[in-house]
Simulated scan of single mutants.
Amino acid sequence: MLVKAVRMQAAGVGSVRQVVERAGGAAAQLADIEEVTAYQHDNHELLIQQFFKADRSTVLALSAVLRFKATSADRSVLDALQHALTYWSKTRDFIPGWDADGRRLDLGFASAN
């Protein structure tokens, strides 16, 4: 639903609201998320991976065009995004966890899953 919402954003916020409403509304979406989370505990990421894998190039293309700005001194998310963008054209399940200088990326913001 998130990827659909991002695609629909180009048509305006009203379109995004229509997509959410067609899916049962925000309350229904939240209830579904909570149900999955309760059922899978901390493994709910595994359930959504299949939906995002096909849209990887779209998300990376969008990320390459948008200008992100850190809201704090911590730039770890932006650094990780920039690192992922360097592997945009590669086809692999995983990318290295270190940058071109051999420094380990700070991925403390991400879950172990």
Rank of each mutant, 00 (worst) to 15 (best):
M1S: 11
M1A: 07
L2K: 08
V3T: 08
V3M: 11
V3A: 13
K4R: 13
K4A: 13
A5G: 09
V6G: 09
V6W: 13
R7T: 02
R7C: 10
R7P: 04
A11E: 15
G12A: 08
V13N: 14
G14Y: 04
G14V: 03
S15P: 04
V16G: 08
V16T: 07
R17E: 15
Q18P: 02
V19E: 15
V19H: 10
V20H: 03
V20L: 15
R22H: 12
A23Q: 11
G24Y: 05
G25Q: 04
G25H: 04
G25M: 06
A26T: 08
A26L: 15
A27L: 12
A27S: 11
D32W: 03
D32F: 03
I33A: 14
E34Y: 09
E35L: 06
V36C: 11
T37P: 02
A38F: 10
A38Y: 10
Y39L: 11
H44L: 09
L46P: 02
L46T: 13
L47G: 07
I48T: 07
Q49T: 13
Q49E: 15
Q50F: 12
Q50H: 13
Q50K: 14
K53R: 12
A54R: 12
A54L: 12
A54N: 11
R56A: 06
R56T: 09
S57C: 03
S57H: 10
L62I: 13
S63C: 09
V65M: 11
L66P: 02
R67M: 08
R67H: 09
K69P: 03
A70Y: 09
R75D: 15
L78M: 13
D79N: 04
A80C: 09
L81A: 08
L81D: 10
L85W: 04
L85F: 02
L85S: 04
T86W: 05
T86F: 03
S89P: 05
S89C: 05
K90E: 12
T91K: 12
T91F: 03
R92N: 08
D93F: 07
I95M: 09
I95V: 11
P96S: 04
P96V: 01
P96L: 03
G97V: 01
W98K: 02
W98G: 01
W98I: 00
D99M: 01
A100H: 02
D101R: 01
D101L: 02
D101P: 01
G102C: 00
G102S: 02
R103F: 00
L105V: 00
D106W: 00
D106R: 01
L107S: 01
A110Y: 07
A110T: 04
A110R: 05
A110K: 06
A112T: 14
N113I: 15
